[in-house]
Amino acid sequence: MEKLMEILMEINPDIDYKTEKNLIDGKILDSFSIVNLVAQISETFDIEISPKYLIPKYFNSVDAMWEMIQAILDEE
């Protein structure tokens, strides 16, 4: 979880990831940041994020992202 926070802080340090639940729908993270984020997450956790996960549901909050990472790890 800390690793995830680290990545997010690197991408955009001004956001309060603990409370923000609307990162995508609220247009706080744009598509460039997402691409970057995905690249970092897949490298850090050694997983492959299939495009099917690239929807707001999985990226709107840190918790959602963490759940997604867990789900992918379980699948593999």
Partner: peptide, 19 residues
């Protein structure tokens, strides 16, 4: 965005290149 941009942007070779 969904069917071209993301698949290319987060593809393995592209993320490797980025790294």
């Amino acid at each position: 965005k969904t069917y071209l941009y993301y698949p290319i942007a987060v593809s393995r070779w592209n993320t490797k290149l980025g790294r």
